[in-house]
Write a protein that binds this DNA or RNA. Structure first.
Length: 263
DNA sequence: ATAGGCCTGGAC
DNA sequence: GTCCAGGCCTAT
């Protein structure tokens, strides 16, 4: 589920129910999560008001009026299940946060890799992040500058959050296909027009996915994302008909069209 | 730059 | 059973 579009949508949904409301109860229901978010942390956030919800890369920041921030990250399989106190919990409820308006925020995550922690807002320990593809700062210039520092293949570079904040494994492949860039091209060797095409492609695939997710949420039609290359090994490229290939880079699957993505 | 680990479910 | 998974951190 969670790449940038899904996280953006999750933050929007959360914002709607949580902004301005106080935390009245927190339960952490998985040992791995409890390691990072223990009794002391629970006590620390009880009574605090959630002033605003911000997304930075794939982190969600719940800024509290206590001077702390609750940082949530969905990793591979997390999502918010938003409902009301008293409803039956989803099967993989890993943490439950109740608010003074009766709303309930459930961290729903089968793999339990999600993280939750509280930190002082003044000293927020986020990793270095590059420009966010949904922001105006995401320009060909900015991307070129970040890519120029790397000698390795462009696709793994796109997954580095300090290069582009929020690009994940699916949309990295999708964007490279759209820009007709071969995933094994060294990042620093991309010619300017390829960087331009890639910048635009990243923006487009992420915006489109976000719009689709928002639409789906409202009307629950237009459901399935159909990808151009991701998870389509052996199927014909929608542009040139060549069979899509799957390779492994830095331990992750990459899908591309050997016919129209050239080094 | 790249394996390994964190966790668990689901597909085969 | 075995393999794979949309993320990211740590160690090498």
């Amino acid at each position: 589920m969670p790449e940038l579009p899904e996280v953006e949508l999750a933050a929007e949904r959360l914002r709607r129910v949580a902004s301005g409301h106080r935390i009245t109860a927190v339960r952490v229901r998985h040992p791995a999560l409890r390691r990072a978010f223990g009794r002391g942390d629970v006590a620390r956030v009880i009574g605090a008001r959630i002033e605003r919800v911000e997304r930075r890369a794939k982190f969600q920041l719940l800024h509290l009026d206590s001077g702390d921030t609750l940082i949530a990250h969905f990793r591979m399989s997390g999502d918010w299940h938003l409902d009301e106190a008293g409803a039956s919990l989803p099967r993989f409820a890993r943490a439950v946060i109740e608010l003074d308006n009766g709303a309930r925020i459930v961290l729903d995550d089968p793999r339990a890799l999600s993280s939750l922690r509280v930190v002082a807002t003044a000293a927020m320990p986020l990793p270095a992040l590059g420009p966010d593809p949904l922001s105006r700062a995401f320009t060909p210039r900015a991307l070129a500058a970040r890519l120029a520092r790397r000698s390795g293949p462009v696709k793994p570079a796109l997954l580095d959050q300090s290069v582009a904040a929020g690009v994940g494994n699916i949309y990295a492949s999708e964007a490279l296909w759209r820009a007709r860039v071969h995933p094994e091209t060294p990042g620093r060797e991309l010619p300017p027009d390829a960087v331009r095409a890639l910048t635009a492609a990243i923006r487009t695939v992420l915006r489109r996915a976000l719009a689709r997710a928002q639409r789906y949420r409202r009307s629950s039609t237009g459901a399935e994302a159909r990808f151009d290359v991701y998870d389509r090994e052996g199927e014909p490229c929608r542009r040139c008909g060549t069979a899509i290939r799957r390779i492994v880079q830095a331990g992750r699957s990459t899908y591309f069209c050997p016919g129209c993505q050239r080094i």
